[in-house]
Amino acid sequence: MLVEQKKIDEAVATIIGFGGTGILNCVQCGACSAVCPGVKAGFPLLCRNLIRSLLNGQLEEIIEDSSSWGCQACNRCTEVCPQGVRPQEVVFAFRRYQANELAFSTSAVTSQMNLYETGHAVFTDPKELRRQVGLPEVPPTSAFNKQAQEEIQALIDNGPMGELGLF
């Protein structure tokens, strides 16, 4: 594979900009991949493999790969990494790069809409179930609380998520 320094610099700067600040500490030892449930389940581009691709300057080339969305965010990788890379932050930085290019599955849009409208990423009308178990129908959360919802909307609107045209 032909490796271009300019592409490497661009990939590294992108990942660091999205929060994967430890990427350059990686020595490709693979401890992260050894404990990663996503790697075990068969996602091809997580932990060591993802970092290797990025350090080879691949970014656009792998933008459609869904592995990063299979990351469980469990942070086993962060716990074992001997170099302080915090590999999960690199995986999430790559995911943020994908998300900001709208390279994510349409199924992920629903939870963004739910969060924006109700303050809950997972939302179903709970009233009947809550009544059944003897709780007040309306939970003390943002679910039916207009002021809380407006606060969440303000926080989302005032950032990159608000500029994606999802809401």
Binding site: R96, A108, S111, A121, V122, L164
Partner: peptide
């Protein structure tokens, strides 16, 4: 509100 879940704001 939501914490927010990993698949939402933390992914953006």
């Amino acid at each position: 509100a939501c914490c927010p879940a990993w698949g939402t704001a933390p992914s953006f």
